[in-house]
Design a protein around this nucleic acid. Sequence first.
DNA 1: TATCCGACCTTTTTT
DNA 2: AGGTCGGATA
Length: 716
Amino acid sequence: MSVLNVNSDLNEQQLLAVESTANHTLVLAGAGSGKTKVLTHRIAWCIETGQVRPDSILAVTFTNKAAKEMQHRIQSLIPTPINRMWVGTFHGIAHRLLRMHYELANLSPQFQIIDTDDQLRIIKRILKELDFADKEYDPKEIQSRINFWKEEGIRPKNVQVEGCSNDEMSLQIFKEYEAICIKSSLVDFSELLLRVYELFSDNISLLETYRSRFQHILVDEFQDTNKLQYRWLNLLASQKNNFFVVGDDDQSIYSWRGARVENMQKFRKHYPDYNLIRLEQNYRSSSNILSAANALISNNPSRIGKNLWTNKEDGKPLMLYSAYNELDEARYVVDTIESEIQSDHEHKLSDCAILYRVSAQSRVLEDALRLKGIEYRVYGGFRFYDRAEIKDVLGYLRLVFSKNDDAAFERVVNFPPRGIGDKALGAIREGARSYNVSLFEAAETLLKNKELPARTEKALNDFFMIIENIKNHEVIDNDSLSELIEIISLKSGLVEHFKKEKGGRGLDRIENINELTIAAKDFDGVEENGILESFLTQASLESGETQASEGADCIQLMTLHSAKGLEFKFVFILGLEEGLFPHKRSIGSMEQLQEERRLCYVGITRAQEYLCLTHAESRRLHGSEYLTSLSRFVKELPESTIEHVRIGGSFIDFSNEEKQSSEGDYQLGQIVEHDIFGSGIVLALEGRRESLRIQVNFEDSGIKWLVASYAGLKKI
DNA sequence: TATCCGACCTTTTTT
DNA sequence: AGGTCGGATA
């Protein structure tokens, strides 16, 4: 099929984008408007019309999944092999560049990527060593502070401290952290990006090489780029390069992890000759669903602005169900799936998604689905390579690979427990610092010099024996990674340890280790150096989406965040209540509230034919029960698109339960007045009757916890 | 050194 | 409710 034919099924706007001849193009692509289609067709078109060779194209995405899908879709459009094209995530591409230019980037050739967990471990260790223990500092907070700095492109030497003691001490940790990373050749996620940025800005000739190599740079989900990623792209994309970005400001839902929608405005400023193309025809949703989405998002004042339209029929109205509580809500959703969807053989279970704001909401649903024997799959949550047992095995693997991997040493030296506690570890760290060697080498030295108590000495010797044992096997079968992992899981005592774990949890873990062995089989028999490296890289850069049930036909459960980019015939959005959605942590700020609204917009626009919204009048969350009020987002939807579902017979079933206490007098979001503090908004309720405590955000006096029976609050 | 118990906290997630 | 963390205890 020729590309011209392929392009013939594009609409006018899509075609303009695909064949845009401007050097810089910003495509404002509404939900369901064929964003990926435009991106893939453009690449296909560029190659096929002979304008560009695949290896002068750089296409950047945010997830590995998106990268793979893009590659796949392009290849299905054109016969030219595209494996020399650079398609990948920011991190994947950065990693590739650093491996190629490690010397210029001041890295050792065998630098290791560490993940969030390893990073936190290092920070905790630093805190302990610097004796910050007495102060109430949260390692996680420091971690995000450090990553925030890095994502701003800031090194410790560039930090401007403004007399804030918290910052000062974070800076001290930052310095120490950087020293450790340099010493042990560790690179964290934000470091990957920052290094490449510095690599390019410090080596103009290298930058020029890549500028002329990557004639075309394309970016997906541009609204999700952070500051550093933008600077990175901006460096690479000179005025001469062809820079093509696709994004939707209305779907920006990741500002909390550094995404900057403003990058879309920046693009317009940096590339003034840019060509702006709006994709506004929606091919996904029925007209009712789209009207609801449009009405909702129009309440956000700061938008670039676009209006999605469709030539589809009105379709079914949106259903709004008012549940008595979260159990009733789950029951209604599951019943509806059973009666409306499962009964019709035209429909597959996988056409159907249940979306919610917080992952804690999935429990009740899972229970209800299991009760009915309906297959389901929960997306997100724990990722495969993040599981503790997987990281344990990988820890051994890393240590076998490199003695100098301190993070791996710490993880594994006393796991499974073999009597090397804090004290022994402290001595080893001390030794490592004074001899300026790795922990592993320090331990060896301590052992040689007989500086340790007999018990520790024996334990440590055992540990070295294990590592030695594993290594010997490696020599025999050095082309079988899966075998090596099997040997590790046995010799390390991990499997034995997990077998003893109570509650069946351990068997799951062993199962996961087996899966890791299977994943490693892909690398078996590859006659190439650095197999271990590439396996470890895959483990740290990819989340391991390979769940057995992925292809199975089942109901899809996920948070609204993880639903972005997907579409389903039937969508249920649950928990439309003030305080839950919009979440109470976002209610206080205009910016965050707008982001919640965009999240709701993302949710609504996932639906093709059928959309059901629910809220529960009473909800049990974190152990206590709250009375709720309907989400403002529902009130922003046009009444004409909504049908209210009457509460079914099940209401009676629940009325037998213990009656709600009078805590119901207060609702989240309610305005109250206090004699001294003035007026404020109820943020949270806890306990009941005389022990009921209320958290109120007072206009003048800030957030306070009050005991309801003493406070004498007046409802307004 | 390992384990158990109570205090505390609780949005969203990719690399 | 359920997980994590730190201190106290075996």
